[in-house]
Write a protein that binds this DNA or RNA. Structure first.
Lengths: 166, 166
DNA sequence: AGTGAAAGTTTAGGATC
DNA sequence: GATCCTAAACTTTCACT
């Protein structure tokens, strides 16, 4: 059920080469083509690989601004859940996290221009159950999260995910 | 060069159905199959669709914790650039934004367990040029950013991306 | 936009460990 | 249960209309 070293080699090749081609993965990992197919199927069954899809570059499409809003919600009877649900309904909000500590939610959105930023800010501020918001306007994206496994060394993957070293 | 309504219909179908199959896209959009192929090629050439790849579910793989760190850097001679570069080198840091305002950087990481959180926090704190950090531990992910276009209504897309309404 | 043949990719069957 | 080969089935690309 758990991943093994061969799975990790395949996943790392997928992320590093940004490929979906079993042929290419087979070359890079020295795992035979048909085994690559078998392993990818199995990773999909285990929910580790989701659907295969296209990666849409939001900046290239016309939404170059990443806007991050921290939200402090009222702390009583289901307010937090309500606010969370309403954050999810706002157009352009692509990530929402529920957090521990001073901040209750962090919402990240991809926007087209300043007017879209302004209308988003006013949507957040007029939202029922919201006590305070803190917005961060990003100047540049040093790294987007589109291929997360690239940011782990094989060593970290092995250390963190495999129980028994041998 | 710019996208038109037909491009947006295709992109929205890709995001909503999480599909990569031109046949399925053709069905959903009523655009002929060969035109879907042609349009997807053209979107790729324009950089709007990047590579097609697998979506790796970091939580399912074994990195269920999203950890968000705001970094305030020293404000002199290239300190900011240095800090940015060093943030990018840390294992597990999947998104880094350079921001305007009180916070200079926002780094988002996907981690396996508390011990990985602790070692990341100490890496951040011991980093040269870092004045202060504020960490946010997320309890749950209400939405990850893996299919951003799902979070835009067709109306918003048309309003924000197409110049001339007709 | 559409057609159809060529090229490429994935699935399925069966042998092996 | 995992592996790996081969061949059939399917999908995509490409030259042409």
């Amino acid at each position: 059920m758990d991943v093994d070293r061969k799975d990790l080699r395949i996943l790392k090749a997928i992320a590093d080469e940004e490929t979906r081609s079993p042929e290419r993965i087979a070359e890079l990992t020295d795992v035979p083509l048909s085994t690559v197919h078998y392993r990818i199927d199995s990773l999909r069954e285990r929910g580790i690989i989701r659907n295969d899809h296209y990666d849409i570059d939001m900046a290239a499409l016309g939404f170059p601004i990443t806007f991050i809003v921290e939200v402090i919600a009222e702390h009583g009877e289901g307010y937090r859940e309500d606010v969370g649900d309403r954050l999810l309904e706002i157009d352009g909000v692509t990530q929402v996290y529920f957090a521990a500590g001073d901040t209750d939610f962090i919402a990240i959105s991809q926007l087209s221009d300043r007017s879209m930023v302004e209308s988003l800010v006013s949507e957040f501020e007029s939202m029922d159950g919201v006590v305070r918001t803190k917005s961060t306007f990003t100047i540049s994206t040093l790294r987007d999260g589109h291929e997360p496994l690239q940011q782990y060394s094989m060593e970290t993957l092995v250390d963190e995910l495999l129980d028994q070293e041998r």
